[in-house]
């Protein structure tokens, strides 16, 4: 229905909630946008007028970095660390936790699913 910031099409929800479907917009920024554009919090996306949708789109384009641009920036930052040869970069290269967490156990988010080790069971 309403296309904002490229591909995102949130519908029947309240505007504050719907905006959070955009990568780079969470509760706080969604609230900010609502206040800037003067939309009552109870308003739902299908109740927005075209002018309001346009206003929201403009605000986001102007003031926030979202979706592709944001993803690109994050990827660039990580790439910088990797090319630099610093400790954080090495950890990124090896898909291990970067911020000093233990890896003896856990760390499954970075390491992925546990791989069975042959002959581990007694």
């Amino acid at each position: 229905m309403a296309r904002i910031a490229g591909v995102n099409i949130p519908t029947n929800k309240r505007v504050v909630i719907a905006l959070q479907y955009i990568h780079g917009i969470g509760p706080r920024k969604a609230q900010e946008i609502i206040e800037k554009v003067h939309i009552p919090p109870a308003r739902r996306v299908f109740e927005l007028t075209d002018a309001e949708v346009l206003q929201i789109r403009e605000t986001i384009d102007r003031d926030y970095q979202v979706e592709g641009d944001l993803r690109r920036e994050v990827a660039m930052n990580i790439k910088r660390l990797m090319d630099l040869g610093c400790y954080r970069g090495l950890r990124h290269r090896r898909q291990l936790p970067v911020r000093g967490q233990r890896t003896h156990t856990n760390a499954r988010t970075r390491k992925g699913k546990a791989k069975p080790i042959a002959g581990k069971k007694k």
Binding site: R80, D83, L84, G85, C86, Y87, R88, L90
Partner: peptide, 14 residues
């Protein structure tokens, strides 16, 4: 190099 400014020396010596 220029990019290293602001990092610590220890970060580059595992």
């Amino acid at each position: 190099s220029e990019d290293m400014i602001g990092h610590k020396f220890g970060e580059f010596s595992p």
